[in-house]
Design a protein around this nucleic acid. Structure first.
Length: 374
RNA sequence: GUGGCGUUAGCUCAGCCUGGUUAGAGCGUCGGGUUGUGGUCCCGAAGGCCGGGGGUUCAAGUCCCCUACGCCACCCCA
């Protein structure tokens, strides 16, 4: 049995890093005033067909679309923004004041050919800020994304800021012809992929990974030189904040947001050499004989009730093996209870780092651990 | 959806080109050396429809085809 193509299981210790990222995101978002939006995993198909952006491959060939028993066409969400916007409209959230600030942490589904860092089910952390054109809000969203990456990574993060301007004859529309003309001049110096992209989607040429091509592109016309005065002023305003370098039936509200792929951040963490912090127990309780088991269970329970992390050996094996298991859990202490201990009502607390052992009365073991485990 | 490379023990891989008795290694697991003491060391054991199916052959892990899955490039994107 294997999981379906393009899906994956996250198990310890990988799941711990996954969960840590989710917690980090939630913490950063909520501290900035964003509330979590939990929306359905599937929506009416036409929401995505209208909302995602007309001609992208996501709509054209990547959607998990199916019909339910009532013949309604539904689609597993391929991205987060459309659902959040729909929820805003459904619940008239603008009535509670603007801007509306929401975040999501959810699985996305796209029927694609899997690759490293690319899956049929993946997960995104994202935020949406709707209802204000204040450049400070743009800056906030960018800053939050930047902070999330910075805090998640163990390597440096570079933030590059640019503006696409807005669609229109005196703004973004002037840029593409200029870029094409530039690329045409350097046609023979570019590699085959770029020559093709040049015609199909000129902006994609900037994604080229060939160093020689990148050198040429450094001299390409700059988008910033072509966008209109209003757009330029807005970008400048965004840049000005804290030194950053880089339609569904509701009212017309401006919006800004981002989505970050959890799997890709995990990949970047690995590339940066991030280790996995092992789960750490305060104490691993080891009953040495059958007769000590119930006392061991009671001891463990008391530790847990005191807010300490405790586990115990549920499988009968030699002490040698039990200590090996204790070691693997990363436990700070091992609590040994056997005949000897039971006879005098103590427990042997073994410091797993130093090997030092102390006999502690059973009813004091929890408070003793509380003092020594920190 | 297109092209390329892969798939052998729980994990990482060797063996395949030049078919031939019981398919190997390291790590991990379990046990023992130490019948109540881990992280080092030594010894031992378990663990494999060689991804699945079909074909060629006296004989297939090895050669051929199909298929599933993974990875890389394209497309696109997180």
């Amino acid at each position: 049995m294997k999981q379906p193509r393009g899906t994956q299981d996250f198990l310890p210790p990988a799941s711990e890093r996954f969960w840590a990222l989710e917690k980090l995101g939630a913490d950063i978002f909520e501290r900035a005033g964003y509330g979590r939006a939990i929306t359905p995993m599937f929506e009416d198909t036409d929401l995505f067909e209208r909302g995602v952006g007309e001609a992208t491959d996501i709509v054209n060939k990547e959607m998990y679309t199916f019909k339910d028993r009532s013949d309604h066409s539904l689609t597993l969400r391929p991205e987060g923004t459309a659902s959040v916007m729909r929820a805003i409209v459904t619940h008239h959230l603008w009535d509670n004041g603007l801007p509306i600030k929401l975040y999501y942490d959810a699985a996305m589904f796209r029927y694609e050919r899997p690759q490293k860092g690319r899956f049929r089910q993946h997960h995104q952390l994202g935020i949406e800020a709707v209802g204000s054109e204040d450049p400070a809000l743009d800056a906030e969203v960018i800053e939050i994304g930047h902070n999330l990456l910075r805090e998640a990574y163990v390597g440096p993060v570079a933030l590059l800021l640019n503006s696409m301007g807005h669609r229109g004859p005196n703004c973004r529309d002037r840029y593409l012809p200029a870029l094409r003309a530039f690329l045409e001049q350097h046609r023979e110096e570019l590699d085959a992929d770029c020559k093709r992209r040049m015609v199909v989607n000129p902006l994609r040429v900037f994604d080229c990974k060939v160093p020689a091509d990148q050198a040429i592109l450094a001299n390409a016309p700059m988008l910033n030189d072509f966008i209109c005065d209003d757009c330029r002023a807005h970008l400048a305003a965004v840049q000005g904040y804290d030194g950053l370098v880089e339609e569904i039936g509701g009212p017309a509200l401006p919006g800004i947001g981002f989505g970050l792929g959890i799997e890709r951040i995990l990949l970047a963490q690995e590339a940066a050499g991030a280790g996995t912090a092992p789960a750490v127990l305060d104490c691993y309780v080891i009953p040495l004989e059958q007769a000590a088991r119930s006392e061991a269970v009671r001891l463990m329970r008391r530790m847990r009730e005191a807010g300490l992390a405790a586990d115990m050996a549920y499988v009968e094996r030699g002490l040698k093996t039990q200590l090996k298991h204790a070691d693997r859990t990363g436990a700070r202490f091992a609590a040994l209870i056997g005949e000897k201990e039971l006879a005098v009502g103590v427990v042997t607390m073994r410091d797993m780092t130093s090997g030092e052992q102390n006999e502690v009365p059973l009813d004091e073991a929890t408070s003793w651990l509380g003092e020594h485990a920190s």
